[in-house]
Design a protein around this nucleic acid. Structure first.
Lengths: 103, 103
DNA sequence: TCAGTGATTAAGTTATGTCTTAAATACTAA
DNA sequence: TTAGTATTTAAGACATAACTTAATCACTGA
């Protein structure tokens, strides 16, 4: 929990998660999308991995990173529940999905 | 957005939000629940207020703080949508509420 | 007006985060 | 084996966050 919120506190790391939400990427592909150095990006990836938000897999020369979407969603949802038990956005989302199911 | 996630990255600040989720409190009442100094707590409250997560109101000698629950829920939800468009926990929550409405 | 209380501001220290460059590791292919 | 590429580790600089104590501001009530 602490590690997840710590990880999310950085703009760079949130951008990395956004990239990985669309497609798995190698460390190099991710680094290429930022102005900072590769080691800096590598450190950000380590933070994300320690938070359980991404996983990595070495394939030959490359290290492929991918999102662990459930972990992020679960953590955010758990915290939202804790602080605002019946939050409006969740209810709105629910209504939308419920409406879809009816049709 | 950045300010919200920055605010949430601190254990103390998340605890403050949890306290305020149950009841409005004065700065002193909040500070009494932590081991750190009052000025330190005051600074944390400023961070939370700058993030739009809480508001304060001075009544006489006291400053009352209260949660702005929608802001937190909206931000978390917006971000969850961005990274995992149709996240499982939200769907689970939706299903639960939808079920309630049927009965 | 003055002493006391609640809260914040100011100033300075310490801890932590984030970045850089240089070096090391691991793999690929000539 | 050697050169080249992908990535991480190491070490250190710099900026920012978080905390402390002391001082200040604002309000209350004698």
């Amino acid at each position: 929990m602490q590690r997840v919120f710590e990880a999310l506190s950085s703009v760079v790391r949130r951008k990395i998660l956004a990239y990985l939400a669309h497609a798995d990427m190698t460390a190099g592909e991710i680094a290429a999308r930022f102005e900072i150095s590769k080691p800096a990006v590598s450190q950000h990836l380590t933070v994300l991995e320690n938070a359980g938000l991404v996983t990595s897999e070495k394939r030959g020369q490359f290290v492929h990173y991918r999102l662990v979407p459930d972990h992020l969603a679960n953590t955010l949802h758990a915290y939202a529940q804790e602080v605002c038990p019946v939050s409006k956005p969740l209810k709105a989302e629910s209504a939308r999905i419920a409406a879809k199911r009816k049709s």
